[in-house]
Write a protein that binds this DNA or RNA. Structure first.
Lengths: 246, 246
DNA sequence: ATACCGACTTGATCTGGGTCAAAGGCGCAC
DNA sequence: GTGCGCCTTTGACCCAGATCAAGTCGGTAT
């Protein structure tokens, strides 16, 4: 776990530090990044990129939450990725986007024009390697989620999602695995349903059930307190430590 | 689509050519690969790597089929990846495996010792870039599968699986999208169920239903004929061309 | 040939989660 | 304040797919 932020690729003026990559970047490389960098803001609900669109940029999330979603013709949608601050968006080497990228909350992104970014990668092995590591992490996360989607019950799915969101929240780090966890849900019930392969009614019912059973406490609709993180992991059917250990 | 095999990382003596990577490798690089290469054979059902095991090698599938699976304590299992010949196994930079790798059929792999392979990557940018491309493809496939697991009906799931397996079979290329497709299923009903997040009974029932409705023809349990690939894609609820176009 | 075993099919029944419908809350504009 | 919209909850009912339980089929060892 340790420092999530070091996954990001950014540059010195970003709110996000770019330790892992740019600590190793020399002045010339940083200057290159700076030259092709720009910020974009989106309102909640706006689509950042449509599936099939030509990708003009890559970048990382500065603040807010974005999600990758796939939609079938009849309207069924599945969220296939959740992008929190410091997460990277885009595919160096891909001409067009494979899924819709949607701003789930108000969103700020730090973007780099794709072509020059790709050029820089090809000339900068340590950036390419960093990207590979990040992509492998995303792949592991995606496959972890396949287990959730394919085999877990609705209650387990909710618990899994809460543990993932909570885990990324700073407040947990202070408390440790057995401790209390407090955070605000950044997703509507519908967005949770789209991520979990459920309906929003089922999400709502299971949230109520978890509350009734004392696994979580709710204040308003979004403010969540988890008295015992371990208990939540048990509910998620998760045999691991939830990624809290190194 | 075009040439699947060019995804592989191998070396000249492998049954699999290694066009994309090694066409660009010089003699010294090929010699390095050769020095750390070895073959391993597994029988159907054998576990190649246990989740959590220390990874001693990376490599690619030469023949047969392997699958990546995750298992919960209570025995529920979800297949999270299907590895066909030419697919790459392993995570440069990872000390331990994230999932079980199981030989679904008799299996031959071409392996490289991990440490020297990683060293070679760090010194050989074009190999690292090739690995990044391959990993991005895997990520797309995993996310595509999340839609299948989260939102498709049993019938659509089966049709999706058949179209993926058939698509990798050489016989299709000759016939094109509207044509006939013939192949042998390399998976038991149970393995199909584990991949699709279903039970084996449901898989069997839906296979019968697709047969009854003329979407597929079955000869024995495993030999499948698809009269119209387009029809199969329609059944899969798939709006794309199934990856047949470039 | 017999009988055994693993892979598969089919039937009967059950149930978790979907669907449809009707109310709460709560924030915001007027 | 009052009213309007959106998010959320809750209830009643239904159905796709799970579960439980017999069989069938094909290969192979005795």
């Amino acid at each position: 776990m340790n420092e999530i932020l070091n996954l990001s690729i950014g540059c010195e003026n970003c709110p996000i530090q770019h330790r892992a990559v740019c600590a190793r970047c020399d002045a010339g490389e940083l200057e290159q990044l700076e030259a092709i960098k720009y910020y974009r803001s989106f309102e909640a609900g706006q689509t950042v990129i449509w599936s099939g669109d030509r990708m003009e940029f890559v970048g990382s999330v500065v603040s807010g939450i974005a999600s990758l979603t796939q939609t079938m013709e009849d309207g069924r949608t599945q969220m296939v990725g959740l992008l929190l601050p410091s997460d990277f968006v885009g595919r160096p080497g891909r001409e067009s986007a494979s899924y819709d990228v949607v701003a789930t909350t108000d969103l700020v992104m730090c973007c780099f024009r794709r072509k020059p970014f790709e050029k820089m990668i090809s000339e900068t092995p340590h950036v390419a390697q960093r990207l590979l590591e990040m992509t492998l992490d995303e792949l592991d996360a995606a496959r972890e989620w396949m287990l959730v989607l394919g085999r877990k019950t609705a209650r387990e799915k909710i618990a899994s999602l809460l543990s993932i969101i909570g885990r990324r929240d700073a407040s947990l780090k202070l408390e440790g695995i057995s401790g209390k966890m407090v955070f605000d849900l950044p997703l509507t019930r519908e967005a949770m349903a789209d991520y979990l392969g459920l309906t929003l009614e089922t999400v709502s019912r299971q949230m109520s059930a978890l509350k009734r059973d004392g696994v979580i406490e709710l204040e308003g609709k979004r403010h969540v307190t988890v008295p015992s993180f371990q208990r939540l992991l048990d509910e998620a059917g998760d045999d691991s430590d939830g990624g809290l250990m190194a």
